[in-house]
Amino acid sequence: MSVPAEQNTPVIKEILFGRANQKIFRDGLWDNNPITYQVMGICSALAVTTNVSTALVMSLGLIFVQGFSEAIISALRNHIPPRIRIIVQMAVVSTFVITLDLVLKAYFYPIWKQLTVFIGLIITNTLVVARLEGFAMHNPPWKSFLDGTGNAMGYGLALIVVSSLREILGSGTLLGFHVIPGSFYEQGYSNNGLMLLSPGAFFVLGLLIWGHRTIAKYVEGK
């Protein structure tokens, strides 16, 4: 009576990674990218992007926090009283953020020091709140997990693009290695210090939004 294992696996694969689920995942990654399309979670996107390594750690942290908190909220979704749902969501998110903070503090202390308050501010990252409210409250846990990780990866992608631009133009390095050849500097090239300051972050992100929306042919308010 038992189903042979080789027949069983495609079914499970279809359930876990079927077309609909792939779409959910891809949606956050590109079509509906949280930073450039929804313009959400901008605070940390600007603050941690002076170099690639902090942006990378921040993105991995957000993937962890968002994936798991969406899965948990979605598992609890039928038991949360609607009036207090925001505070329940906040409590779940902050639990994961505290875990993340303690792990980073223990194993990646220099980067934790650079990220300062921005790990804690994941709690109020509107991207997390909006996906919890808009997706996890109406969908089963596995789909919510995919949606969370997909969106967080889309967020990470935008962060890595912004931080690479800022690090290359601002300090001439990428992940700490020099990428602009020394001969450039001899010709009179110099690093653009503005890229490391806050206005540079706003400009790069503004141009990134413009670029992505031009390719995706999206016009706001139409």
Partner: peptide
């Protein structure tokens, strides 16, 4: 404003200019 720059994009660039002023 160019269509795809409207909304979020241009707001971000204006904020950059404001930040420049506040510097």
């Amino acid at each position: 404003i160019p269509g795809s720059l409207r909304g979020g994009g241009i707001a971000m660039i204006i904020t950059g200019l404001m930040a420049l002023g506040f510097m």
